[in-house]
Design a protein around this nucleic acid. Structure first.
Length: 480
RNA sequence: CGGGACGUAGCGCAGCCUGGUAGCGCACCUGCUUCGGGAGCAGGGGGCCGGAGGUUCAAAUCCUCUCGUCCCGACCA
């Protein structure tokens, strides 16, 4: 990548787009606002799917699939839901050359169609809980779009559960927020804040929305996953009732939770640099690339050594050998760095003579110079996995350190505005709990309440804006 | 829909002010030499200069209209 754009510069947005396009994660589509996910981006998404799906299964969920088209009337059944989503819906009015009797909405989210089915499936308390997830695409007619972060169509998973009790639904909603949090930390190496949304920021139709919030390298926040306690709102709208053990008839309690291909955007903005994409080893489609270095006369020996190394690491490690002709090693180095491969092994005659390879990490340990090291060929099966783990850990540590340094308690509105403008990051400030104060702060500073921590250490204070009594701090930030 | 910018080769751009044979870099094709951090040389292919009208002997260039894209705002996983 020829560009030298620092992540904190004013060209951050341009830098992000360059990284995505040049690494080959995605491309613009002929339809404005839509995105083509290229094989590299899809492979990252598939790895994310594996990690999330494993966690969903471990917590007792099953996958199912519901239709893309939703009768328009379904969306109207829940008042807040339709008000929240109607403006961004794509609607099909014609099919088979005829005008449809009832327009079909292309799902912006699937609560309505799924809960209409749950109404058929649930009769008794013995049918509960229902714990279902679906992997799908959804469409939201966005005004302004950005690759991965906001596109008109995106891929995601949405979990939809039904429970017999309010407490069980609440527990589920919090559990799934924690699943997202663990996934982001352990696999994406992206540390996140956890908490609950304010009423103004919550999902249309939810009682409470829990979320995880990540911090990007330009110090703007990004919502990375949400989990909603829907109460009985949709159960009432779709008549989802069950007979209790005692014989009574009750509405079920629902949750829904989702995470999308936006996570790929989060991954890029959290780790990548001016060399291009940086992928954490656990999600990298290619974890190790082996680049042979040779003069023509040495070709056969060196390529054979490369093949041996690739074979010895497979299939536990996702490893590729790059024996392409006509491309010089320096070019390959830069290309694989641009594509985010976490670890590169260089094999040349000098290395072979010494029984070793030269190892170059895509990102060095914090503070360390980006120096190359050598590894004995005989021990690669042990040293490479260990090195990948170390890389994964150090990526997380760097991001966690950056997050920690960019959470600041703030007590006056002037200081709040100053830090927002000059530094950004998360600001912990007291808030009285009134929507009017929240709205005015958003209006005047573009900062929103990203979340309120679940277990705040009680701390009396005064609202940032109005000065009324407050018992805890909320996290504010400018966000994507 | 408000405010700003821009449409010239696949991509990125210069040329426009001051009208006169369509250019550069990257990419692509051929050949040789190269190969431990984005190779060098030589040769080559590729354009309705977004579209329409006008002015002119002559328009990428000047004028009018139009279409489209991008950025900033309102909406948002």
């Amino acid at each position: 990548m020829a560009k030298v754009i620092t992540p904190r510069s004013e060209d951050y947005s341009r830098w992000y787009t360059d990284v995505v396009l040049q690494a080959g994660l995605a491309d613009y589509s002929p339809v404005r606002g839509c995105m083509v996910i290229r094989p590299l981006g899809m492979a990252v998404w598939e790895n994310m799917q594996k990690g999330l799906d494993r966690r969903f299964k471990e917590t007792g969920h099953e996958n199912a699939y519901f239709p893309l088209f939703i009768p328009e009337s379904y969306l109207r059944k829940e008042k807040e839901h339709v008000e929240g989503f109607a403006p961004e819906c794509a609607v099909v009015t014609h099919g088979g050359g005829e005008k449809l009797e009832e327009p079909l909405v292309v799902r912006p989210t699937s609560e309505t169609i799924i809960y209409s089915m749950y109404a058929k499936w649930i009769q008794s308390y013995r049918d509960l809980p229902i714990l279902i997830n679906q992997w799908a695409n959804v469409v939201r007619w966005e005004m302004r779009t950005r690759l991965f972060l906001r596109t008109m169509e995106f891929l995601w998973q949405e979990g939809h559960t039904a429970h017999a009790t309010e407490a069980e639904a609440e527990e589920e909603a919090i559990k799934m927020m924690n699943v997202y949090h663990a996934f982001a930390s352990e696999e994406m190496a992206v540390p996140c804040l956890r908490g609950v949304k304010t009423d103004a920021e919550k999902f249309a139709g939810a009682v409470r929305t829990y979320c995880i919030e990540a911090l990007m390298q330009d110090n703007k926040a990004l919502q990375a996953g949400t989990s909603h306690n829907l109460g009985q709102n949709f159960a009432r709208a779709f008549e989802v009732r069950y007979q209790t053990e005692a014989g009574g008839l009750e509405y079920v309690w629902n949750t829904s939770w989702g995470a999308s291909t936006r996570l790929i955007g989060a991954l890029v903005m959290a780790h990548s640099d001016d060399q291009g994409l940086v992928l954490p080893p656990r999600l990298a489609p290619t974890q190790v690339v082996v680049v042979p270095i040779f003069k023509e006369s040495e070709r056969e020996t060196v390529v054979r050594a490369m093949d041996d190394i690739v074979r010895s690491l497979s299939p536990e490690i996702r490893v590729k050998g790059d024996a392409r002709d006509g491309v010089r090693p320096g070019f390959k180095f830069n290309e694989w760095e641009m594509k985010g491969v976490p670890l590169r092994l260089e094999v040349g005659p000098r290395d072979l003579a010494a029984g070793q390879v030269t190892a170059a990490r895509r990102v060095s340990a914090p503070g360390a110079a980006p120096a190359k090291t050598t590894l004995p060929i005989a021990g690669l099966r042990e040293s490479v996995p260990a090195l990948l783990e170390e890389i994964q850990r150090s990526l997380y540590d760097q991001a966690a350190d950056r997050l920690r340094r960019n959470i600041r308690p703030v007590d006056t509105y002037d200081e709040f505005k100053q830090i927002l403008d000059e530094i950004g990051g998360f600001l912990q400030a007291h808030w009285c709990g009134r929507a009017a104060c929240e709205a005015r702060i958003k209006d005047e500073t573009k900062a929103t309440i990203r979340c309120i921590p679940l277990d705040p250490a009680p701390e009396p204070g005064r609202c940032l804006l109005c000065g009324e009594a407050s018992t805890r701090r909320a996290y504010f930030a400018r966000a994507y």
